[in-house]
Design a protein around this nucleic acid. Structure first.
Length: 568
RNA sequence: CGGGAUGUGGCUCAGUUUGGUAGAGCACUACGUUCGGGACGUAGGGGCCGCAGGUUCAAAUCCUGUCAUCCCGACCA
């Protein structure tokens, strides 16, 4: 491609809308432009990268035995109403009506449609197992689009669905996708971590996320360097630790604590430590109200609690008026003693002795409370969120925290959708079986941003050769110098003939501009034709090299070809 | 959805307090001088100051409303 003809609107200054590195660089390098909040156009360079990522994903999915098809993005509501997700998605689904007032939506994800496709088109058990996938635009009306294409409202996703007749079959299909994902993210040049994830929301028995560690990631990861354990923050299992509590079987005592509402104020007032308190938080779970207890310095993990309680709708904090009604006190004085709703206590509470809780009476707390003696929880379970310093649930070493960008997610769905929509298969023996499903997603456009987050310097993007929009650039220092231009043209053609995706910077710009642009857009290797052109010497420089090296033309061309071939 | 901020040529921003002919740098066009890490000079083109009302002789500036964008939080298959 001749750069004089390339639509590549690079920017010297960072548009005010961008906050994080990848977003800034995508705008500056002319990869994308924003049309509306969370909605982006892909310009030529951005589209080339996106297509390359798609192609890698496609090759590995095909290699894993999955078949590609393509669903519409504009979908009739029926299947989503049948699965119940028309309501579950709620406001985050783009919904509309056609001219006959029939309901439609823009597809946020396609479990229902793939299930329906198999119902409609698969006749015999002999066709199973089967994995289908598509690479398609998805639409979600995010409450808060952010960080460019990392959280956008329209994005490209590869979604795959496996259909099996047995649990063992599902395990195999799942493993095949797991392996394919490892190959994909490796080929994309991403440094990734695989974490255990919660599968509650999608239903099913197992789930893992592929995370790219990055400070701008929106998801928390708990991991252990010693044994390799890694889990999503919400999912990570917590080992109870013993707190330093007063000894003995002390009598429960009611104390007056005027104007003390928060744990901080209570710590101040009582002169005790946060771990000497247990906080009691009231939740609304479907139509019921429940209480959750964790140590004062811990946080309730609502995902764990929701799974434990098994409620269908959202688990949410109880409304203040209900807290008053249930505790007969102002908000801030809830406690387990005498509370008439079920209490779910964290395992750690069981290890506490003579602790302090709210007294269900305004301005009053109890001290020296003991579990079993003074109150009995309905259930004792792991319902808190892990924190740094917690023990690794596998090996017991201290756990570490990191932030990550979720680029892939795989689920064992089980029969959630096949049951809801009626996907059954007749087996060899004539019996009917509900088909067992898995689903597997990759955020293609998110991968693009993640790759930039992990590969950049102060001058711009450093594309891995596999996904670079172009692999090499040929730069004549002076476009008015015929000798330089002729040699550059010749080198450019030789690279094209060798199958290298090359750029030829034939613009009549000063060399500084050309160097800045080629660094900004992250081309992996460049050849500069300059002063020593007459001697047949050019300069070779890889994007990550500090300095360029003088080489004879033939050597430089061969080195570019060799470098690219060995990096992809 | 709660809190905060910002809307002025393609980009970054000044001007708003105290109303009085819309500005700068970059980018763009032409010419000239330049030509090894985002050159310089001269001359140009481009803006209903987000939008709608209102106040006023006069509004980018004051008032009301509204829309949009970004940040923090909630939510997020």
């Amino acid at each position: 491609m001749r750069m004089s003809k390339l639509l590549m609107p690079t920017l010297r200054e960072v548009p005010a809308e961008a906050e994080i590195t990848s977003h800034k660089l995508m705008l500056r390098a002319g990869l994308i432009r924003k049309l509306s909040s969370g909605i982006y156009s892909y310009l030529p360079l951005g589209l080339r990268v996106e297509r390359k990522i798609e192609q890698i994903v496609r090759e590995e999915m095909d290699r894993a035995g999955a078949q590609e098809l393509l669903m519409p993005a504009l979908l009739p509501a029926e299947a989503y109403m049948q699965s119940g997700r028309w309501e579950v998605f709620g406001a985050s689904m783009f919904k509309m009506k056609d001219r006959y007032e029939r309901d439609f939506c823009l597809g946020p994800t396609h479990e229902e449609l793939f299930t329906q496709t198999v119902i409609d088109n698969v006749r015999s058990y002999k066709e199973y197992p089967m994995t289908l996938y598509q690479i398609q635009h998805k639409y979600r009306d995010e409450g808060r689009p952010r960080f460019g294409v990392i959280r956008s409202r329209e994005f490209v996703m590869k979604d795959a669905y496996s259909f099996d007749l047995t649990e063992e079959g599902l395990d195999k299909s799942y493993q095949a996708m797991y392996d394919a994902y490892c190959r994909i993210f490796t080929r994309l040049g991403l440094d990734f971590t695989i974490v255990d994830a919660d599968s509650g929301a999608m239903g099913g028995s197992g789930s893992q996320e592929f995370m790219v560690k990055s400070p701008v990631g929106e998801d928390g990861i708990a991991y252990c360097d010693d044994c390799g354990y890694a889990a999503n923050f919400e999912k990570a299992e917590c080992i109870p630790t013993e707190a330093d509590c007063p000894d003995g079987d002390l009598p429960m005592e009611k104390i007056h604590t005027p104007n003390v509402h928060t744990i901080e104020e209570l710590v101040e007032f009582m002169g005790a430590k946060p771990y000497n308190f247990a906080k009691t938080i009231l939740y609304k779970a479907d139509d019921k109200y429940i209480a959750a207890m964790v140590r004062g310095d811990r946080d309730v993990n609502e995902v764990k609690l929701k799974n434990l309680v098994g409620c269908n709708d959202d688990l949410e904090l109880a409304e203040p008026f209900m807290v008053r009604e249930l505790t007969h006190a102002e908000v801030g004085f809830a406690g387990p003693v005498g509370l008439e709703i079920p209490v779910y206590a964290d395992k750690e509470v069981e290890l506490m002795k003579n602790f302090i809780v709210g007294a269900n009476e305004t301005d009053m707390h109890y001290k020296n409370v003991n579990l079993g003696r003074d109150f009995t929880p309905e259930t004792i379970a792991d319902i808190r969120t892990i924190t740094a310093g917690d023990k690794c649930p596998v090996c017991g070493k201290p756990i570490k925290q990191a932030q990550g960008i979720e680029v892939g997610h795989i689920f064992k769905l089980g029969t959630k959708y096949s049951k809801a929509l009626g996907l059954k298969a007749q087996t060899e023996t004539g019996e009917e079986k509900t088909v067992i499903m898995g689903c597997y997603g990759i955020g293609v456009t998110r991968c693009l941003a993640a790759a930039i987050e992990q590969n950049n310097d102060e001058n711009g993007i450093i594309w891995p050769a596999n996904i670079a929009p172009y692999q090499a650039v040929v730069i004549p220092v002076n476009a008015k110098n015929d000798e330089q231009m002729k040699m550059a043209e010749d080198i450019y053609k030789r690279l094209l003939d060798a199958g290298i995706e090359a750029l030829f910077d034939d613009r009549d710009e000063r060399p500084g501009v050309k160097f800045k642009d080629s660094d900004l857009i992250g081309i992996p290797v460049r050849i500069v034709i300059g002063k020593k052109c007459g001697e047949g010497i050019v300069e070779y420089k890889e994007r990550t090299d500090e300095k360029s090296a003088d080489k004879p033309v033939d050597t430089a061309v061969a080195d570019v070809i060799g470098f690219i071939k060995s990096s992809i």
